[in-house]
Design a protein around this nucleic acid. Structure first.
Length: 654
RNA sequence: GCUGGCGUAGCUCAACCGGUAGAGCACCUGACUUGUAAUCAGGAGGUCGCGGGUUCGAGUCCCACCGCCAGCUCCA
């Protein structure tokens, strides 16, 4: 009895009729062509990714993916994770497998093994994995029942797999999909490529600890990171690109350009050099100016507070681990530290702003009251998370707390997102927005959270900004919108944030007198645009690769006198530029011009100004823009003309 | 905090199987007075992260601590 026909629609609209049950591979071979049949890696049937061996059992839209489609990288990396896990279990018997997904630019696989994998082990595994690829073993798909799955992985002694199987069936699955290549079997949703040979080439990158199910109370596993590409050439190109990205690393550039330093005596706290400080204070000034232009006032509050404040704000209960405590010398040394503590350095500005708000009677006419602060904060971060400027223990935020009426929330959030977008665009930074809801470790009842989340979400949607949902990622006092920017090696960092807080006004018993002459409770928005100056500068260093725009460059121009007789004119030019508020220095070394140019280039100074006989005679300078090639040399310019040009570039763009 | 790796001159990096710590750049001195990415010569610079141990002898091997790097947990 022949199967009924099904109609397959291709992306170009063409339709083919084939007997139901024809596999995708057969279909491609007979109805499209041998070339594509050979190149195909997986298929998409009605939007669902499937293996080529899948039968077409109903009429559907069909698209075929090959190595030319970017989507296929994710597939071969998932294949690669299976290949790596199979050779690890062969080379290191007794190792248990857990999970192994693909990531943005590779994959990882988490293993449970008593002994750590050494770098030498990784080499061994990588070699064996690439041999497994060459062995060209087909990926075979099979569906089994829960009992079959439990029997299979139970027989192999895979405890973690058994746990996952229980979960999958508890969530309502009726079967489990197995994928085997050679003797080795794992389960996953798939799809996989036709065979291991199609993976291309695998490179293992590192081994690191990871917790089972991401919970630090669970067993620690060993995570092997790797990546895979269709060809060695693609892999080489990626490796080269990674090396280039590492040259932008702010920790490296910070040293080379002499912007900041760290000392073991103060881990996680920055020493800013004269150059770094210039960037820092320029950003501070720019933000102050913008805040003043947008209805904020700047205030300063104490750094050190009695713990009574933190008890009131809730930080004592929810955030104490991250706070630097000052112990009372009189207290009984046998008591635990938190009981001996009398004061703490502030980890956030909000509680002190709330105190400031309640220091006097407030009127509805003052709202929204926007308090801006750039005070120093301290957070006792775990040693392992410190990282250059992006994660520190002492930092300053461009922080603000906005006290307003509920009816003003939408408008204020819209204004804020516009402000944030404006600042990021001035730097050319690409950002993504995330909406984070109540965390497990939260303060306040669900009714308050429902209200805060709904209000913030409604305001966010009014702005029309695309956003990602992050359930459980909110602050302990309220939901938030975070703005993330990626660093040079693709790690995402949170910079700006908008947080809605109904709770603090309750805890601090904040009130304002409304038009009805009655007392009302305000709402608070916590917000930062740069996030922290430290992290923001770290991101900027990488974003610009150290080539700061003129307005932000620590040194905006360097004068290069060709010979000693030109120093007098160089000094005159410098005096004029300094008077115009520009940052300019003179190279007094006795090098050749070529050497001075090279030094200025390496220091990434926006303008090198050559002054020699011609310039002295003409009363001008010959600027050379930072960069390479002939176009960098701007030729002889009258001093006024150059001052006008650099003056425009020195203006703050927001 | 956890897992793994690393720590030699201001910077970048050498130093074999345990046997007297070295280079380039930067710095200082002198000569050169220079036109768009490196002038030449000389000099100075080290508690090999810190502390213990093994050894006739430790930068090298072992232990503990500090810091840094990657990842995890956590976060601006």
């Amino acid at each position: 009895m022949s199967a009924p026909d099904v109609v397959i629609t291709l992306p170009d609209g063409a339709q083919k009729s084939v007997p139901a049950g024809t596999t995708v591979a057969e279909f491609v071979r007979t109805h499209i062509g041998a070339g594509l049949a050979k190149a195909a890696l997986f298929a998409r049937v009605d939007g669902v990714d499937v293996d080529l061996a899948r039968p077409l059992d109903r009429s559907a839209q069909l698209a075929i993916f090959t190595a030319k489609n970017p989507e296929s990288l994710e597939l071969i990396r998932h294949d690669a994770a299976h290949v790596v896990a199979s050779v690890v279990q062969r080379l290191f018997p007794g190792t248990q497998v857990t999970i192994g997904p693909s990531t943005d630019d590779g994959f990882y696989y988490d293993f449970a093994r008593d002994k750590p994998f050494t770098p030498e082990d990784l080499e061994l595994i990588e070699r064996a994995a690439n041999e497994e690829i060459k062995a060209d073993r087909p990926f075979v798909r099979k569906e089994v029942t829960k009992d079959e799955a439990l029997a299979l992985f139970g027989g192999l002694g895979e405890k973690f797999k058994l746990e996952i199987i229980e979960d999958i069936f508890a969530k309502g699955a009726t079967t489990l999909t197995l994928y085997s290549h050679g003797e080795w079997t794992d389960f996953c949703l798939g799809p996989h490529g036709p065979s291991t040979a199609r993976v291309g080439v695998i490179k293992l990158l590192s081994v690191a600890g990871a917790y089972w199910r991401g919970d630090h109370r669970n067993a620690q596993l060993q995570r092997i990171y790797g990546t895979a590409f269709h060809t060695q050439k693609d892999l080489d190109a990626w490796v080269h690109q990674q090396e280039e990205a590492r040259k932008r690393d702010h920790r490296k550039l910070g040293k080379e350009l002499d912007l900041f330093a760290f000392h073991p005596a103060a881990p996680g706290a920055v020493f800013w050099t004269a150059h770094g400080t210039m960037i820092f204070t320029t950003l501070q000034y720019a933000m102050r100016r913008m805040c003043l232009a947008n209805g904020y006032v700047e205030i300063k509050t104490p750094l050190l507070f009695n713990k009574m404040l933190w008890e009131k704000s809730g930080h004592w209960g929810k955030y104490r681990e991250n706070m630097f405590l000052i112990l009372d010398p009189e207290a009984d040394p046998k008591l635990p530290e938190e009981e001996r503590a009398s004061f703490s350095l502030k980890p956030m500005n909000c509680p002190s702003h709330h105190l400031f708000f309640e220091m006097k009677r407030r009127s509805y006419r003052e709202l929204p009251l926007r308090l801006h602060t750039q005070d120093v904060l301290h957070r006792n971060e775990a040693t392992g998370v410190l990282s250059g400027l992006t994660r520190v223990r002492q930092f300053q935020q461009d922080d603000a707390h906005i006290y307003l009426m509920e009816s003003q929330i939408t408008d204020e959030v819209k204004r804020l997102t516009q402000l944030i977008a404006k600042v990021y665009q001035a730097f050319g930074l690409q950002f993504t927005a995330k909406f984070a809801t109540r965390p497990e470790n939260k303060l306040g009842d669900d009714a308050l959270w429902d209200k805060a989340e709904a209000a913030l979400k409604a305001a966010l949607e009014e702005t029309g900004l695309a956003y990602e949902l992050k359930p459980g990622d909110g602050a302990f006092y309220g939901p938030k919108i975070d703005f993330d920017v990626a660093d040079s090696i693709g790690r995402k960092w949170q910079l700006g944030t908008i947080q809605l807080d109904y709770l603090a006004p309750e805890r601090f018993n904040l009130g304002y007198i409304g038009p009805d002459n009655a007392e009302h409770r305000p709402v608070v928005i916590h917000r930062a645009i740069y996030g922290s100056f430290e992290r923001f500068i770290g991101i900027l260093i990488e974003h610009f690769a150290g080539n700061f725009p003129v307005w932000l460059a620590p040194v905006q121009a360097r004068l290069l006198p060709v010979a000693e007789r030109h120093h007098a004119w160089a000094e005159e030019v410098q005096a004029k530029m300094l008077a115009a508020g520009l940052r300019v220095e003179i190279d007094r070394s006795h090098g050749k011009l070529g050497a001075m140019i090279r030094d200025a280039q390496l220091a990434k100074i926006p303008y090198a100004l050559v002054v020699g006989d011609k310039e002295v005679e003409a009363g001008g300078v010959s600027p050379r823009k930072h960069g390479t090639g002939k176009e960098a040399d701007l030729g002889l310019l009258a001093l006024d003309a150059f001052l006008a040009q650099i003056g425009r570039e020195a203006e703050i763009p927001y």
